Structure formats: structure tokens, C-alpha cells
Amino acid sequence: MNEAHDFSAQRAETFAVFRNLNDSADLPEIADVDYFFVASEGEIDWPALADALAAEGYLCELVDETGEDAEAPYMVATLTEQPLSAEGIWIGEEIATRIALARGARPDGWGFSA
């Protein structure tokens, strides 16, 4: 696992972003929360990452676009029907991040849909 990862800073950012969203919009009480992961460097075994996340209850989708404007592949790990709060988002984010870091991926944000 990447010991250099700053979980305290990641948590603080998650709480700040949630606070800003909550202040500017009427958020749903329950939502599907998506966590995004990209390769740290080089090749990554995306199926192994998906399997490890799925074992913890995440639904996983690899987004691997093709074409001229395609971005690098990334994984979306979703927890469905979650109570929407900064703490709830963080708990799911921390678990998924630890799994991803151990498999060569790094976090790249989160989002949600009602």
C-alpha cells in the first residue's frame, strides 16, 4: 500500500466539498455514491481491483473509452442507496481508497446521484 497517501487531507477535502454542496443545494437523504479511481502509474489489473472492491459491496465499472478524445481508463466504484452525509461518503471513500492503493490505483474524486 502507498504509505505516502495523505488520508487526513483526503478526508478534510471530502468534508469541505460536501459542506459546500450542502450549503448550495437541497441534497437528497439517500443516494448512490460513486468513487473514482485512476492508475497510479503504469499498467493496473483492473479486474483484480474490481473483484476486491466488489467483495466489500461496491458495484464496479471500468470506463475505458476509445478514440481521439478518450481519457485514460478509470474505475467507478458505487455504493448504492447510501444515507448522504460527509461522514458516510468518507467511510466508503476510505475503504475503497485503501483497497485501490494496495492494487496500484489512486482516488480521483467522488460524486452521487439520487
Results as ranks from 00 to 15, higher is better:
1 M>L: 09
55 A>M: 08
48 A>Y: 05
77 A>V: 03
88 G>M: 14
59 L>I: 12
86 A>P: 06
87 E>W: 03
93 E>Q: 15
51 D>C: 08
68 E>A: 09
59 L>K: 15
75 M>S: 02
5 H>C: 09
19 R>N: 12
50 A>F: 12
42 G>H: 09
105 A>P: 07
3 E>R: 12
54 A>M: 13
79 L>G: 01
43 E>Y: 08
56 E>W: 03
19 R>Q: 14
13 E>Q: 02
108 D>N: 15
44 I>N: 02
33 V>Y: 02
47 P>R: 13
86 A>Y: 02
95 I>R: 13
56 E>S: 03
57 G>I: 06
94 E>H: 05
33 V>P: 07
71 E>P: 06
25 A>F: 13
65 E>R: 12
2 N>A: 04
41 E>M: 04
54 A>V: 02
8 S>N: 13
111 G>N: 13
14 T>C: 12
10 Q>K: 02
71 E>A: 12
61 E>S: 12
15 F>K: 09
66 T>Y: 00
80 T>Y: 14
69 D>Q: 13
50 A>W: 06
6 D>P: 06
15 F>A: 01
114 A>K: 05
13 E>W: 05
71 E>D: 13
19 R>P: 03
8 S>P: 01
22 N>V: 04
62 L>I: 00
63 V>K: 07
52 A>W: 09
92 G>Q: 03
60 C>E: 02
57 G>P: 00
94 E>M: 09
24 S>T: 09
23 D>P: 00
69 D>L: 10
101 L>N: 08
54 A>P: 04
54 A>W: 10
48 A>Q: 11
42 G>R: 10
86 A>F: 00
13 E>V: 03
67 G>R: 00
49 L>Q: 05
40 S>F: 12
97 T>I: 11
38 V>C: 11
9 A>C: 08
101 L>R: 04
44 I>Q: 04
87 E>V: 07
91 I>L: 14
73 P>Q: 04
90 W>V: 06
108 D>Q: 00
76 V>S: 00
2 N>W: 04
46 W>C: 08
9 A>Y: 10
8 S>V: 12
61 E>R: 14
72 A>H: 09
68 E>C: 04
86 A>K: 02
13 E>G: 05
107 P>Q: 00
81 E>M: 13
15 F>S: 08
78 T>G: 11
37 F>K: 05
111 G>A: 11
91 I>S: 14
57 G>M: 04
50 A>E: 15
29 E>W: 05
94 E>G: 00
80 T>H: 14
16 A>V: 05
33 V>F: 07
88 G>V: 12
85 S>C: 03
42 G>S: 08
31 A>M: 01
13 E>P: 01
22 N>A: 14
58 Y>L: 13
84 L>Y: 01
112 F>Q: 06
3 E>G: 09
